[in-house]
């Protein structure tokens, strides 16, 4: 893709994004100008402002990974590493029953009172382990059309399920290397050409092991 990288810049809250009022995500309009609300990267070509930091803001259909913390009548309270109350409602045809401490993945069905998250299609994840990453780095860990996560999975042989809420479940293969790689991506998420850089990193690490 051809992007003039001079047009991409790091902006901070209060920076002017446009001299006229425009509706761009993560901005606000004040006195007929458009200002950034966040520390982020603004791409003038696509007129998008992507936050570099911050907590997860749930939306419908977001895939999430979490832990069941409390079993109540017809409801499982869960921990998504997020400040709002989150729960799975037990439906008529749900095949899985959870107990406290179970790890699951699912999808956001709804957001209540602007902060409480209702989860649907929850499936239990057996074995493996979870790690926490910054939610704003998750999309980079997944990569365009899942290229990034697929290459980690292919090279390490680890099964990886990523929640947009910043919790990642891993199982099998070279889990240690998969985790190290994910944290490396988290650190360098703002860099370009990362998919290739990570590929060489993984191959180098594997090669070292062989020697």
């Amino acid at each position: 893709m051809l992007i003039d990288f001079m047009q991409r810049e790091i902006v901070v809250p209060g920076d002017v994004i446009s001299e006229k009022p425009e509706h761009i995500e993560n901005t606000y309009i004040y006195s007929n100008k458009t200002y950034s609300k966040v520390l982020g990267i603004y791409d003038a070509a696509s007129r998008s402002l992507v936050p570099l930091e911050g907590s997860w803001k749930p939306r419908r259909e977001d895939s999430v990974v979490g832990i069941v913390t409390e079993v109540r009548n017809k409801v499982y309270l869960v921990d998504l590493s997020y400040f709002g109350k989150s729960f799975i409602v037990v439906g008529k045809y749900d095949e899985y029953a959870f107990k406290e401490g179970d790890i699951f993945y699912g999808e956001v069905k709804d957001i209540e009172s602007r902060k409480n998250v209702v989860i649907k299609d929850a499936k239990k994840l057996d074995g493996g382990m979870i790690i926490h990453v910054k939610p704003k780095k998750v999309l980079r860990i997944i990569g365009k059309k899942s290229t990034m996560v697929r290459q980690i999975s292919d090279i390490t042989g680890t099964e990886i399920i990523i929640g947009l809420n910043g919790i990642i479940w891993l199982n099998g293969g070279r889990m240690d290397l998969a985790i190290k790689t994910i944290f490396k991506i988290e650190q360098e998420a703002h860099n370009r050409g990362l998919t290739d850089a990570i590929k060489s990193y993984l191959e180098e690490e594997i090669r070292k092991e062989v020697i």
């Binding site: 809250p13 209060g14 993560n26 606000y28 609300k37 966040v38 520390l39 930091e53 911050g54 704003k136």
Partner: peptide, 9 residues
């Protein structure tokens, strides 16, 4: 700003 919390300025 490093926490990602939305701010006016």
């Amino acid at each position: 700003a490093t926490s990602g919390i939305q701010m006016r300025d």
